[in-house]
Simulated scan of single mutants.
Amino acid sequence: MAQVSVSSAAQAVIGDSEFDRDTTVTRREPGVYDIDLSAGWTIINAVNGGYLLAVLGRALGDALPHSDPFTISAHYLTASHPGPAVIRTDVVRTGRTLSTGQASLFQYDDEGAEVERIRVLASYGDLDALPDDVRTSAKPPHFPPVEQCFGAQDGPSPVQGSSAITERLDLKLDPTTLGWALGSPSGKGEMRAWFGLADGRDADPLSLLLAVDALPPTAFEMGLKGWVPTVELTVHVRCRPAPGPLRVSITTRNLAGGFLEEDAEVWDSADRLVAQSRQLARAKLS
């Protein structure tokens, strides 16, 4: 597939971009990291779960002997807010090809007590050391060209305070999954989009942790409204993405008891499946 540009913004580079700066953690002591969670990655007042996963992923990449996330599972315990946070990591096991660690992110309540926001367990390795052999029945999703898809700038003005993350992203949504924005949701649990960062930074394994949780909820296209908070999210990173925009396809097959699952696939510009995820989220039914 020919590479296309989602954005005409000046090209930032991996390691020197808004995403890199906003996910940077400062090591206080071995296994303990400080960060000021940026308000730029919020939805209403809560910090986006994919951004938070990338923050924890960066801390674990420093704490473990391997730098690339292979699989990372997060349980979201309480909503995170912009401001100071501390991450505590623990090395569970180290091996030749994989190392495993866990991490928790804490913030402080009004009395100054620590409140755990997220807890993750992850295995890390070296994506560049993986063999090239691929045997798969998975096929890339069919998307309209970027110029036939729609972004936040094509819709009505967002609700005040709700759009901070959209300014960090360059999303172009497949119009067949945009019925919710026009008041006519399809009833199908599907959401698809071209994905990039607004400053033009190419994708890497850490930004894939953001990409799987960056699209509007599939619940919108099922006729539901309101916040859809993540309860648990597991991401598998399959290979290092090629330069260029990503295609993200998310589906929901079952909404029951006020909870739904979202299965995501992320494909790069070389038509490779670079990440997969599943999350359980709470849906507002009324």
Rank of each mutant, 00 (worst) to 15 (best):
V4H: 07
V6R: 14
A10F: 07
A10R: 11
V13Y: 05
I14F: 02
E18S: 13
F19M: 10
V25T: 14
I35Y: 05
V47D: 11
Y51P: 03
Y51K: 01
A54V: 10
G61W: 08
H66R: 01
A79L: 07
H81C: 03
I87T: 01
D90G: 06
V91C: 10
V91K: 11
V91T: 15
L98Y: 15
A103S: 06
S104N: 08
F106L: 12
D109T: 05
R117T: 14
I118G: 06
G125K: 07
A129W: 00
L130G: 02
D132R: 10
S137D: 14
K139F: 04
P140G: 06
P141M: 12
P145L: 13
D154F: 00
V159P: 08
S162P: 04
A164G: 01
L173F: 13
P175G: 07
T177A: 01
S184F: 04
W194C: 00
D204S: 11
L208H: 11
G223V: 03
W227H: 08
P229G: 07
P229K: 00
P229D: 00
H236T: 10
R240E: 09
S249A: 15
I250W: 03
T252R: 01
T252I: 02
R253M: 13
G258E: 09
E262G: 08
A270V: 08
R272C: 11
R272S: 12
L273E: 07
V274Q: 06
Q276V: 14
S286P: 07
